Simulated scan of single mutants.
Amino acid sequence: MEFLKVGAVEPIEKYLSKKLLDNIEPGAMEARINNILYALPVAIGPRFLYYRTDVFQKYGIAGPPDTFEEMLADAQKINNPPNFYGVGMSGKKYTELTEFAYYLLGNDGYFFKINPDGSYGKCRINDEAGVGALTFMNDLVNKYKVTEPGVTAYTRDEVQDLFVSGKLGIMLSGAFTESILKQRGATFKWGYGLIPHFAGKHRHALVITDSIMMFKASKNKKAAAKFLEFFYQDKWRFEFDKLVGFPPVLKSVGKLPYFQAPIYKVMVESMPGAKGWPLIPEWAECNDIIWDAIGATFLGQKTPKQALDEAAAKIDRIREE
């Protein structure tokens, strides 16, 4: 965003073939801003659901939940505090706002209204989708009590530690958790599922993207585009994606046998409809404001509606400055 703000980035779409562009999932095109594509995704990390297959089998639950309502029902069945908790919840301010994003996107919500030209409008976290998402999160914590207690003391990493230590039944996370489970020698059985959505709503996984851009001052734009066309051939992207351990950026590579392993399969299946973070310079401030609203809700200081109304107003003010 810093490079874009100072006008250093060259719009890239006109240099690339339609064949290449059509072979990339739209949800991975995070760098499309105001309907202008400024970069190509190099690596993508969709988030998904981890669950304890051994515990689910013990309680007669056939597989991972499809909706958040089913996730709540499953969490209630397996919840056994203080030794074991149904679902993890991070409530401590962190560099990423992933927890709220999972529930917000799964309720057909987003952080901002999208203008006709593709730009971001007013903050919309306090609409029906946003308030419904935070209300459900708060109910998991304070009404149904299926999360670990004291959630405002837990960041994502600390919730992950609970899952790895065998104290959680369900966790929403990314591929990095799989590596940590194996590194620490977890002895229990786990599986994967798509990020749930609310009943009657659409599924939208959160996707984290690293992108490659072209500088406006470059004297070799056509040569750079030629390299990208070469690098984004299936055989080279396959080797790259296999090496870094993330799911494929290209639709065609996602169909290869290697990426049909359960963890890759769920990540590939997560991509249609996936959404990323808003690309605005003020996002770090917005992130902090929304975290404060979540914490105030979990602690009973404000209702979800009050907390999000105040947060949305603050966000609109800082973007207008």
Rank of each mutant, 00 (worst) to 15 (best):
S90M: 12
L168I: 12
D241W: 12
H197K: 13
Y103N: 01
Y120M: 02
M1A: 13
P272T: 15
Y59M: 08
K93N: 12
K265C: 07
L104H: 03
F68C: 02
K145D: 06
N83G: 15
N115K: 11
K222W: 11
F112R: 00
N115Y: 09
T303R: 02
D117Y: 11
C123T: 12
E25I: 06
N83P: 04
K143S: 12
S173M: 10
E96L: 13
L40H: 01
I24E: 02
Y85D: 06
I294H: 00
A311P: 01
S173C: 07
P272G: 10
Y38N: 01
S252V: 13
S270A: 15
F100G: 01
S165W: 10
A133K: 04
W283T: 10
G300K: 02
K314A: 06
P196C: 05
P281L: 15
I315Q: 00
F240R: 04
Y85F: 15
M29F: 08
S218G: 06
E99M: 12
I12Q: 02
Q301S: 04
K221Q: 07
T67C: 08
A293D: 03
Y258N: 08
L279N: 11
R32F: 08
L206P: 00
Y103W: 15
R317S: 11
G245M: 05
L4P: 02
R319C: 04
D288K: 14
S270D: 07
L243P: 00
F48T: 01
N34A: 14
F240P: 00
P82H: 07
A225L: 05
A311Q: 01
A274W: 14
D74R: 09
I78H: 05
S218H: 04
G118T: 10
T135E: 10
I263Y: 14
K314I: 11
K314T: 09
G191R: 06
Y102V: 05
P247Y: 13
T303L: 04
E128M: 08
L228S: 00
A28H: 11
F259N: 03
N107V: 12
G132P: 03
E269V: 13
Q57R: 15
P304H: 07
E320W: 13
N83Y: 14
G185S: 08
D117W: 10
P278Y: 15
A307M: 03
I289N: 02
C286W: 14
N142A: 06
A307L: 05
T297S: 05
I212V: 14
M137W: 07
E2F: 14
L104G: 00
F215I: 09
D54E: 11
K201T: 14
K167E: 04
G300M: 03
I24P: 00
M267W: 13
D157H: 10
K222R: 08
K122M: 09
A261W: 11
L4C: 05
A224S: 08
Y38M: 01
I125Q: 04
G191T: 10
E25Q: 08
W236R: 07
L49Y: 04
F111L: 02
A312K: 04
G130E: 01
L97C: 01
K182G: 02
Y38C: 03
